[in-house]
């Protein structure tokens, strides 16, 4: 008899598709037979030009890949770092194409810059240059400061996650996981647009820290003195935090500074009432 028990469908989280920059490995492939033909003919010059050309394209492809991966790690790994892999890769492709058009393909020097600029433009249109250069000039907060604030917030999220592991209540675990997911999205948003940090500073200080204190406090006490009253209070607080986190995310997206501050004051009062913040 076959087992007819239905299996629970679990949706796997979708990984973001990161372009690999394979084009830069594929397009200059004719350089490999070029180097081989030169080798067979005993033409050292041809071997060097073709092999070096392909090597430089591969190096550019690797840099491009690093730049694209960096772009898909939006948080602390991106802010405050001055790596410019994509721009560097584009310049290398332009330089290699220009050099090859003269040294390898034998075009006249007049047409060489056209090849270089064409390749540079192609790289820009296809992959773009590094995002960091698009930061506004009037950006008031230092990049390092923004990165430090996000890193600090991520440490708090890890602490909440640890405390959540100690709580033996499925409902609370799920609620806290939802709160963590929203908080991660907020941090992503700040990392994408670091100017948001100015508006989200209070969120990082008050809300996130409040959520940590609430969760750690409950994780500590519920095993020793669990009571329905304590559970109810914790449930209500988690509901408020989740709601406020969602509002915070929305306001951040809508750039509404005033409303955000009002909401923060409300939660601050609530946390003070619960004795989780010093008055």
């Amino acid at each position: 008899m076959t087992d007819t028990k239905p299996k629970i469908f679990v949706r796997k989280p979708r990984k973001p598709r990161i372009p690999k920059g394979l084009l830069l490995y594929l397009l200059p492939l004719p350089l490999i037979p070029g180097a081989l033909i030169s080798l067979i003919r005993g033409d050292l010059y041809g071997v060097i030009v073709n092999a070096c050309g392909y090597f430089l394209y591969c190096l550019a492809a690797r840099w491009l890949q690093l730049g694209l991966e960096e772009e898909h790690k939006p948080r602390r790994k991106f802010i405050g770092k001055k790596t410019k892999f994509k721009t560097r890769a584009a310049l290398l492709v332009a330089g290699t194409t220009a050099a090859l058009s003269w040294l390898g393909a034998g075009y006249s020097l007049w047409i060489v810059p056209a090849f270089g600029l064409g390749a540079l433009w192609g790289m820009y249109l296809n992959y773009g240059f590094d995002i960091r250069s698009r930061l506004p000039k009037d950006f008031g907060i230092q990049d390092a400061e923004a990165a430090a604030a996000i890193e600090e917030a991520e440490t708090i999220l890890e602490q909440i996650e640890t405390a959540n592991g100690q709580i033996q209540n499925r409902e609370f675990n799920e609620r806290i996981e939802r709160i963590l997911a929203i908080a991660q999205q907020i941090l992503d948003e700040i990392a994408r647009d670091p100017a948001d940090l100015r508006r989200a500073r209070k969120f990082l200080k008050v809300y996130l820290d409040g959520a940590r204190k609430v969760t750690e406090g409950y994780a500590r006490t519920h095993l020793q003195a669990g009571s329905p009253q304590l559970e109810d209070n914790f449930r209500q607080l988690l509901e408020t935090i989740e709601q406020v986190f969602q509002q915070q995310q929305q306001k951040l997206l809508e750039n509404e500074l005033f409303d955000l501050d009002v909401q923060i004051e409300v939660l601050q009062t609530r946390l003070k009432q619960e004795g989780l913040l010093k008055p």
């Binding site: 084009l23 830069l24 397009l27 200059p28 492939l29 004719p30 350089l31 037979p33 070029g34 180097a35 033909i37 030169s38 003919r41 033409d43 010059y45 041809g46 030009v49 073709n50 050309g53 394209y57 492709v93 194409t97 090859l100 058009s101 390898g104 393909a105 034998g106 075009y107 090849f115 064409g118 390749a119 433009w121 192609g122 790289m123 820009y124 249109l125 296809n126 992959y127």
Partner: peptide
């Protein structure tokens, strides 16, 4: 457009370099 530009420049230069690979 970016792809076509890269194709036009890199492939042309590589193919030509392969054909011209003589002392």
């Amino acid at each position: 457009l970016g792809f076509l530009l890269l194709l036009a420049t890199i492939t042309t230069v590589s193919c030509q370099s392969m054909l011209e690979a003589r002392v």
